[in-house]
Design a protein around this nucleic acid. Structure first.
Length: 566
RNA sequence: CGGGGCGUAGCGCAGCCUGGUAGCGCACCGGUUUUGGGAACCGGGGGCCAGCGGUUCGAAUCCGCUCGCCCCGACCA
C-alpha cells in the first residue's frame, strides 16, 4: 500500500487536520487548492460517502451522476453565468463553445427534471449525487477544508406543494443529523443566510471547532442556533433607565483622532458612548450606517434589508467625496441626499459622540430627533457578547464551526428560470418547488480530524476509520510471528473486519509512531518477545489502554474490543 | 484584488547581508553491529539554487520582471 508517512510537518500546512492528512500520507497537494487522494485518504472519503449514501437512500433519495462540465446556455438561462463571478471557472471547447466546471448543479438537475417530469404523479422526487466540484476560490486554504476542487454530495428535491417541499426539507434535515452523528462528529444545525443560491430558509450543519471559519451563536437552552451572519442581535434593555437631559450639541477638537478607540480615549468616554458612521457602497448608491462604537456592522443583514446585490464598505475616495472630510471623521449631521440607517441598538442612546464631517472635529451630546433623524432603525449589526436569545432571552453563547453541510429551501427560483413545471390533478401547469442539500465530503473528513486527534496523530472515529485493526508484526524474520500474523489477517478478513498489515521490515519504533499517526482504532502487536511469554499486545488508540492476550484468544478479544470502542 | 513571508536534494532548513568549489539533519542505496516507541558507525547516490533577463572576469548571493506556494485582509457555496 502506498502510505508515505512524514516524520516532519510540511511547512505549507498550519492547520492541524491539514498537517495530519499530509503526514499520514492521505493527501498530496498538486496545485493551489487541488489535491490527490492517496489510498488511505480515499478509504476515509469512501467511508463518509458510504454513510451519506445509506442515509440519503433511507430518506428516499435516489442517486444519479451528472456531468462535471456543463454548457454555458444553461447558466445563462438562470442568469448565474453573469451573477456567479470569477469563482465559476469557464472554458471553451474546440468549437469555441462556452462551458464551465460545475460548482453546484441546480441548473443541470433542473434541466434534467424539466425534460422528464410532467405529472404530479411523478412527484415528490429527490435526487442526489456525489461528485467532484470545482470552485475557483479567491483564496483556497486549510487543505481539504477550503479547496478549489473538492468532493461534494449535492442533492435536490422536487415537490408539487409548499407542504410537501417543507416535508422534503425536514427529511433532509433529519438525514443530515443522522449522517453527521454516524460520522462521530460534535455538530450543531444553525439557521443560515441563504446567500446567492437564493431561497427562503436554510440551515447549516456546523462541526464545532475553534479553528472554524464560521462564527455561530446558540442558546444554552437549545431554543436557537444561528450563523453570526444571520443571528438576531437583541441586546438587554437597561431597566429603569431614567430620562436623560438632552445636553447642548457641541463641536469639539479631536486632533488626528480617527478610530473609535482614539476618540473615546481622548474624550474620556467608552466606545459604547460613540455612534460610528460607516459609509457603505450599495450597488450604485451610497448609504450611511450608524452603529454603536463597540458594535460591528453585518453586511449580510444590510444586504437583505436593502434587497441589494453588491455591497461593501466604501473606499477612501468615496468617503472623502460624500463626507467632505478625511476618513475617520464621518458623521450623520448635515448629510443630505444619502440614506441614513441606524442600528437598533443606537436608538436608546443619548448625548452621544459622532464625527463632524470635518477634519479633527467630532460632535458631542448628539441626540436623535433634535440633531439626527435616520430614515430607518434596523438590526444591521453582528450579534455580540451579552445579546439575548430571541426566544427565551437567555444570553447567547458564541462559538466557531466548520460548515460541513448546508440545506436550502429554494422555492421556485430555478424552476421558474428554467421553466420546470408539472401538471397538477386539475391539469394546470405548476412550477415545481425545489430544495437543495450539500455536504462537503473532504471537509467532513478534515473536520473529523480537527475533533479527533492528539499530539501523536489522528484518532479515527470507528465509522470513518480506514481500517479497524492494524497488525504490527515486529520481527519480520521470525516464522512464528509471521505465521500468527497472517493467521490473524485471514481470520479477521473472513469475519469482515478490515485489517491493515504493516509488513515493512523496519524498526519497531517506526511502526509504533506511524501507527499512532494514522490512527487506526485497534493495534495488535505481535512480537517474538511477547510470544515467548505466550502473549500478544492489543492497544486502543483512543484511550491508550493496552492489554495482553494469549495468541489463541486474541481474535475473540479483538472483536470484543471493537464492539466497545466509540 | 491589497498587505506580508517564502521558493536551495524527497522532507525540514542553513548559506544570500559582505559575489569566488552548494552545505546540514532526516529520508534513500551498500556494508557491519543492532532490534518493543522515529538506532550507531563506515561508505555512497542525488541539485538548471523556481524561471527569464540584467550587472559582473565571475551570481544561489546584487538589480528587474514573471511564475508558484503560504499567511493576514477584502470576498465567498
Amino acid at each position: 500500500m502506498l502510505l508515505p508517512t512524514l516524520k516532519e510537518t510540511p511547512a505549507e500546512a498550519d492547520l492541524i487536520s491539514h498537517q495530519l492528512m499530509l503526514r499520514a500520507g492521505m493527501i498530496r497537494n498538486l496545485a493551489a487548492g487541488i489535491y490527490c487522494y492517496l489510498p488511505l485518504g480515499y478509504k476515509v472519503i469512501r467511508k463518509v460517502e458510504h454513510i451519506i449514501r445509506e442515509e440519503m437512500n433511507r430518506a428516499g433519495a435516489q442517486e444519479v451522476l451528472l456531468p462535471v462540465l456543463s454548457p454555458a446556455e444553461l447558466w445563462q438561462e438562470s442568469k448565474r453565468w453573469e451573477v456567479y463571478g470569477p469563482e465559476l471557472i469557464r472554458l471553451k471547447d474546440r468549437h469555441q463553445r462556452d462551458f464551465c466546471l460545475g460548482p453546484t448543479h441546480e441548473e443541470v438537475i433542473t434541466d434534467l427534471v424539466r425534460r422528464d417530469v410532467r405529472s404530479y404523479r411523478e412527484l415528490p422526487l429527490n435526487l442526489y449525487q456525489i461528485q467532484t466540484k470545482f470552485r475557483d476560490e479567491i483564496r483556497p486554504r486549510f487543505g481539504l477544508m477550503r479547496a478549489r476542487e473538492f468532493i461534494m454530495k449535492d442533492g435536490y428535491s422536487f415537490d408539487g406543494s409548499e407542504t410537501e417541499a417543507e416535508e422534503s426539507y425536514r427529511r433532509m434535515y433529519e438525514a443530515y443529523h443522522n449522517i453527521f452523528k454516524r460520522c462521530g462528529l460534535d455538530f450543531r444545525a444553525v439557521e443560515a443566510d441563504t446567500g446567492p443560491i437564493g431561497g427562503s430558509f436554510s440551515h447549516e450543519f456546523m462541526v464545532l471547532a475553534d479553528m472554524g471559519e464560521d462564527r455561530i451563536v446558540s442558546c444554552p437552552g437549545g431554543d436557537y442556533a444561528a450563523n453570526i451572519e444571520r443571528a438576531h442581535a437583541i441586546h438587554p434593555q437597561e431597566k429603569n433607565k431614567l430620562p436623560i437631559d438632552l445636553r447642548e450639541l457641541e463641536q469639539v477638537v479631536t486632533p488626528d483622532m480617527k478610530t473609535v478607540e482614539e476618540v473615546s480615549a481622548f474624550l474620556g468616554c467608552t466606545a459604547g458612548d460613540l455612534v460610528k458612521t460607516l459609509v457603505v457602497q450599495v450597488d450604485n448608491e451610497v448609504v450611511f450606517t450608524l452603529l454603536r462604537g463597540d458594535h460591528e456592522i453585518n453586511l449580510t443583514k444590510l444586504r437583505n434589508l436593502l434587497g441589494s446585490e453588491q455591497l461593501a464598505l466604501a473606499d477612501e475616495e468615496t468617503i472623502v467625496r460624500v463626507t467632505e472630510a478625511p476618513v475617520g471623521f464621518a458623521g450623520p449631521l448635515g448629510i443630505k441626499g444619502y440614506k441614513i440607517i441606524a442600528d437598533l441598538a443606537t436608538k436608546e442612546m443619548s448625548n452621544f459622540v459622532t464625527g463632524a464631517n470635518k477634519q479633527d472635529r467630532h460632535y458631542i451630546n448628539v441626540n436623535w430627533e433634535r440633531d439626527v433623524i435616520p430614515a430607518q432603525y434596523a438590526d444591521i449589526r453582528v450579534a455580540s457578547a451579552g445579546d439575548l436569545c430571541p426566544h427565551c432571552r437567555k444570553p447567547l453563547e458564541f462559538s466557531r464551526g466548520i460548515e460541513v453541510g448546508h440545506i436550502f429551501k429554494l422555492g421556485t427560483k430555478y424552476s421558474q428560470a428554467l421553466r420546470a413545471t408539472y401538471l397538477d390533478e386539475q391539469g394546470r401547469e405548476q412550477l415545481i418547488i425545489m430544495g437543495c442539500y450539500g455536504i462537503g465530503v473532504g471537509r467532513t473528513v478534515a473536520a473529523a480530524i480537527e475533533q479527533n486527534h492528539d499530539q501523536y496523530g489522528i484518532i479515527w472515529p470507528k465509522a470513518l476509520a480506514p481500517f479497524k485493526v492494524l497488525l504490527l508484526p515486529l520481527d519480520m524474520a521470525d516464522q512464528e510471528v509471521m505465521n500468527l500474523t497472517s493467521e490473524y489477517y485471514d481470520g479477521l478478513a473472513q469475519a469482515g473486519i478490515e485489517c491493515l498489515l504493516d509488513d515493512r521490515d523496519v524498526r519497531p519504533g517506526i511502526k509504533f509512531k506511524d501507527a499512532d499517526l494514522i490512527g487506526i482504532p485497534l493495534r495488535v502487536t505481535i512480537g517474538a518477545r511477547d510470544l515467548k511469554l505466550g502473549t500478544v499486545e492489543l492497544k486502543i488508540r483512543k484511550t491508550g489502554q493496552t492489554l495482553k492476550s494469549s495468541p489463541e484468544q486474541a481474535p475473540t478479544t479483538i472483536k470484543q474490543l471493537l464492539e466497545q470502542v466509540d
